[in-house]
Each structure stands twice: as C-alpha cells, then as structure tokens.
C-alpha cells in the first residue's frame, strides 16, 4: 500500500493539509498509528507528520499548567511542573506502556490511541468500531479486558490510556485547533461512549488538531495515587486502574477526584463517589461505600465479571493509599 508522507511546520498548516484530503491523518510518535497500519486496520493515503510543530512546551501561567500536544509522555512524566503540581499525572504516565514507548508517544497521540480490543485489531473478525455494521466480536467473545460501564449493544471496548484517566480526574481541558480557529472542551467531554457510533472514539471533528491540554492548579499533591492492576508488573494494559486525588483536612476528605481506567469506552469519572466522600472521614467503611456507589450500573460479560469485584476493591485501595500519604 502506498501512502504519501508530508511534514507540517505550523499548526495552521497542519490543519489545512488535513482539510485537503479526507484520507489524511496526523502522525505523532507513531506508536499506535504505525501498528494499526501494519495490521491493516487503517490505511490512510497521506501521513502528515506533526512532530516539528512547536507544541512541546509545558508552562505555568496564572492558575493553570499548559502542556503541548506533542510533549512526549516521558517528558511530561518527568517535568518539574508536573511533578510539583500533578504528581498523579506523572504516576499514571509512568504506569503506561514502556519507557521506550513513552519516549516516542505524545500527549495528543495518547488521547487519540485506539482501543486494544482484539476484534478491532484482527481484520478477519467482526468489529463495529473498525467496520460499522459487522457486529461486536467481543460481546459473545473473549471479553476479559472489556467494559463494565457505559457500553452499548454495538461495542464493549475500553479506552486503553492511563494518562487520560489522570487527566479526567484532574479537571483538565483540551484545546483544539480547527479551520475556524481554537475551541476548548472539558477533558471529560473529549472521549465518547460508543452508543450507536462506536467508530467514533471522541469528539474531535474531522480536520481538527489537538494543540494543548490545560490543567488547573489544585491542592491534591499530598494525596494522589494511581493504582493500576495488570497481568504483569509492567508493560501491560490495565485490567482496572484508579486515579485518586484528594484534599484532606486532618483525617477528613474536603475534596475528592476519582476516575477509573479499563472499565469503559472513555476514562470513567466517579462523580457520585466524589460527592459522597466530600466531608467524610478517611475510613475503610467510607471508602467501601464510595466504591459501592461508583459501581452502580456496572454490567459484566462472560469473561470480565471479576471486574465487578476488582473495580470496587481498586477504588477502596487507591483511596486508602492516597489518604495514607503524608
């Protein structure tokens, strides 16, 4: 398969190049896109390399930190501003993939990475996300890694990112450049649930470029924890992960932010559990009650019923770890 390769040098240029050809895509680190091309899952006619766009900076201005979409996962995880203000993000990034991959992967690419569902990856199998209308292979198939929240009869895939779970918990926003200029949306509104359009992972519109992620400065530094449960100690996607960020007064939780990974088509924010925990003592009982609230509406399939047990355990455990921190 032949494809064209071009390099963009400005964000505006990248956007207009993308607009010109419907089969064009951006390539950043390439750690996901190139795999998908090799497997025949996607076959773009034109690759627009955005790696030289000036979007790698991480800066603090006023009460927010802005991270360029091309900042590398490794660079973000090690950046002093991130370590100081958002240790949770650093933990989550370091729990993802491997150092080699993080050295290539970008923030924008991480947000845009596709699901790791086997049926999506194998072009011989049915998959509504890859080929709408062919059916969901996972629904009656091997669905151990799959969603327990927010799935539809068309798709039970999960979003595989760790970074995005932390960003969802940290009330981040996404800055997007389109032909008509910039727009900003909440990070939690960026990814979608599958519904009837599982082929759409997120709300980025055709022709748009992610330029930045913004995170408001907060006071969660002392009580942040990213728990990732996986099949081996490193270099594996989450069975379940939990990002927990808290503000504490003594043993009392004054503010809680919680999000889960490995359970839904998007990073799964636990707003009811957060509301419940506000003003509560940090006790095992309260953690378990919060976890139980978070699990309402969960639905398992043949091979992932363990998540109904693992997910609440993980929430309670992450809360325990976050609150016990100095």
């Amino acid at each position: 398969m032949n494809f064209e390769y071009v390099r963009a040098s400005t964000a505006a240029g990248a956007v207009s190049m993308l607009a010109k050809q419907s089969d064009a895509v951006f390539i950043a680190g390439g750690t996901n896109l190139v795999d998908l091309m090799k497997r025949g899952v996607v076959s773009p006619m034109r690759l627009i390399d955005i790696n030289t766009l000036p979007l790698k900076e991480i800066t603090l201005s006023g009460n927010k930190v802005t991270i360029g979409a091309l900042a590398l996962n490794s660079a973000v995880s090690e950046h002093p501003l991130v370590i100081k203000h958002f240790p949770l993000l650093s933990y989550a990034l370091k729990a993802g993939a491997s150092q080699q991959l993080r050295n290539m992967a970008t923030v924008g690419g991480n947000m845009m990475q596709r699901t790791r569902c086997s049926y999506f990856y194998d072009t011989v199998m049915p998959c509504n996300k890859r080929e709408p209308g062919t059916g969901c292979g996972a629904m009656q198939g091997i669905n151990r890694m799959h969603a327990i929240f927010g799935s539809s009869e068309n798709c039970i895939a999960v979003h595989p990112s760790d970074m995005c779970v932390a960003l969802a918990a940290l009330d981040a926003s996404v800055i997007i450049r389109g032909a008509k200029g910039d727009r900003k949306i909440l990070f939690t509104d960026f990814h979608r649930l599958p519904g009837n359009t599982p082929e759409k992972d997120n709300n980025l519109q055709p022709g748009e470029l992610i330029t930045h992620v913004e995170i408001p400065v907060n006071a969660f530094q002392q009580h942040a924890y990213y728990l990732k449960i996986r099949d081996r100690a490193s270099y594996a996607f989450a069975l379940v992960s939990v990002a927990a960020a808290l503000e504490m007064q003594g043993n009392k939780i004054s503010k809680a932010r919680l999000a889960m990974g490995g359970v839904a088509h998007k990073p799964w924010r636990l707003t009811e559990a957060e509301a419940f925990l506000k003003g509560k003592e940090a006790t095992e009982t309260n953690f378990k009650a919060a976890a139980a609230l978070a699990m309402q509406g969960a639905k398992a399939y043949e091979h992932n019923s363990f998540k109904l047990q693992m997910a609440p355990n993980a929430i309670a455990e992450a809360l325990k770890k976050a609150t016990s921190k100095a």
Partner: peptide, 24 residues
C-alpha cells in the same frame, strides 16, 4: 487464548501475550 467461534487466537502479539518482564 483462542476464540472458538473463529478458531483464531486473540492475543497473538507481545502486548497481549504476557511473557514476564524484568519487573516480574
């Protein structure tokens, strides 16, 4: 792991078939 509806392995790569890593 094989999906017996198709007779195909679903984890035929190093990301999904887990050999131990150093950390293990």
């Amino acid at each position: 792991i094989m999906d017996h509806r198709f007779g195909r392995y679903v984890n035929h790569n190093f990301a999904d078939y887990h050999v131990p890593v150093h950390a293990d």
